[in-house]
Simulated scan of single mutants.
Amino acid sequence: MPLTLYTFSGAPRGWRVHLGLVFKGLSADVKYLSASDKDHHKPDFLALNPRAKTPVLATEQGVIRDSIAILAWLDRQYPERPLFGTTTDDAAQSWQIVMECCDYLRDGNHALLSRVFSSVDAVADRGTPENKEFEDAAALVHAEFSYLEEILADGRRYLGGERPGAADAVAFPEIRLVQRGCDTKPIRMTALGFDAQLSRYPHLSDWKDRLHGDAGVMQTMPPHWAA
């Protein structure tokens, strides 16, 4: 039985898993569910996850739910090309970045991009409650971008070290979603201090471009973005 990943196109948690598979040199049958058709509430999927949440990874050993649990399982089941490093210190650093991205960068991105993607591409009027909501959300993301920028400033190629790992798999979708916001809502995002080149964060921009240069990573890009 091959590995089968169930997710939504562009959903960052499922994207993490897809990247983890790529980084480990593994293949999987990726099944993109339709949110508009409510595929995650249909009986076949509920049999895999009664919580109606993605991602889900179906394996010969059973079904694993939750993106971080899946990455951890992949690392134990397929120890080659470890996602969480090879030493105790590597593991501690990788897990720290992974969990901080899950706890802070994901929350900041949700606060910002849920507003950006649902708004018109314009600058909110200064001093209005709407503008403050956008600025507060942008500040959360800038703080996490600065955190990642500092990690990469020591010359390392990837957040996980010399090879991409779990930290990169968790961070990349979030960074790329911000760039997507810049591509589709440039006026709004520029006013909030973001641009598609991530010019305020040169190390983070180089890291993103380095991952973009990997053909396997490009295969994980959301299909609906190409439509």
Score class of each variant (00 low, 15 high):
residue 39 D to M: 00
residue 223 P to N: 00
residue 53 K to E: 14
residue 118 S to F: 09
residue 118 S to Q: 13
residue 221 M to G: 02
residue 221 M to V: 05
residue 166 A to P: 07
residue 112 L to T: 05
residue 154 D to E: 14
residue 209 D to A: 13
residue 130 E to A: 15
residue 84 F to W: 10
residue 87 T to K: 13
residue 44 D to T: 04
residue 155 G to R: 09
residue 25 G to T: 04
residue 114 S to R: 14
residue 49 N to Y: 10
residue 120 V to P: 02
residue 177 L to H: 03
residue 86 T to A: 15
residue 58 A to H: 07
residue 110 H to T: 11
residue 171 A to F: 10
residue 151 I to M: 12
residue 74 L to G: 01
residue 87 T to A: 12
residue 204 L to A: 11
residue 27 S to V: 06
residue 92 A to M: 12
residue 194 F to M: 03
residue 125 D to W: 01
residue 32 Y to H: 12
residue 172 F to P: 01
residue 188 R to G: 00
residue 196 A to L: 00
residue 63 V to A: 04
residue 164 P to F: 09
residue 25 G to P: 04
residue 117 F to I: 10
residue 200 R to P: 02
residue 190 T to Y: 03
residue 37 D to P: 00
residue 218 M to I: 05
residue 21 L to S: 10
residue 54 T to P: 00
residue 190 T to G: 10
residue 34 S to A: 06
residue 68 I to R: 08
residue 213 G to L: 04
residue 105 L to H: 12
residue 72 A to T: 09
residue 104 Y to H: 15
residue 63 V to Y: 06
residue 210 R to V: 08
residue 88 T to S: 13
residue 163 R to T: 12
residue 83 L to T: 11
residue 168 D to L: 08
residue 157 R to L: 13
residue 136 D to M: 10
residue 3 L to Y: 14
residue 155 G to F: 08
residue 98 V to F: 07
residue 114 S to P: 00
residue 93 Q to I: 07
residue 93 Q to R: 15
residue 74 L to I: 07
residue 214 D to L: 14
residue 27 S to Y: 03
residue 203 H to W: 01
residue 42 K to H: 03
residue 212 H to G: 12
residue 47 A to D: 07
residue 207 W to Y: 09
residue 205 S to W: 08
residue 132 K to A: 15
residue 85 G to H: 11
residue 210 R to T: 14
residue 120 V to R: 15
residue 9 S to T: 00
residue 153 A to L: 07
residue 173 P to H: 04
residue 58 A to N: 01
residue 12 P to W: 05
residue 103 D to G: 13
residue 224 H to E: 06
residue 112 L to A: 02
residue 96 Q to V: 01
residue 108 G to I: 09
residue 56 V to S: 05
residue 153 A to Y: 06
residue 88 T to E: 13
residue 103 D to N: 15
residue 142 H to E: 05
residue 11 A to D: 09
residue 8 F to Y: 14
residue 214 D to W: 08
residue 202 P to G: 09
residue 46 L to E: 05
residue 109 N to R: 02
residue 220 T to C: 12
residue 37 D to A: 14
residue 208 K to Y: 09
residue 37 D to L: 10
residue 209 D to E: 14
residue 163 R to G: 05
residue 128 T to W: 07
residue 31 K to F: 04
residue 220 T to M: 00
residue 48 L to V: 08
residue 100 E to S: 13
residue 154 D to N: 14
residue 96 Q to I: 05
residue 139 A to W: 04
residue 184 T to S: 05
residue 2 P to Q: 11
residue 33 L to V: 01
residue 191 A to L: 01
residue 89 D to G: 08
residue 24 K to D: 04
residue 39 D to S: 01
residue 82 P to S: 07
residue 185 K to S: 06
residue 157 R to S: 15
residue 148 L to I: 15
residue 119 S to V: 04
residue 20 G to C: 10
residue 92 A to W: 09
residue 67 S to R: 09
residue 227 A to L: 02
residue 173 P to Q: 11
residue 40 H to R: 11
residue 54 T to L: 10
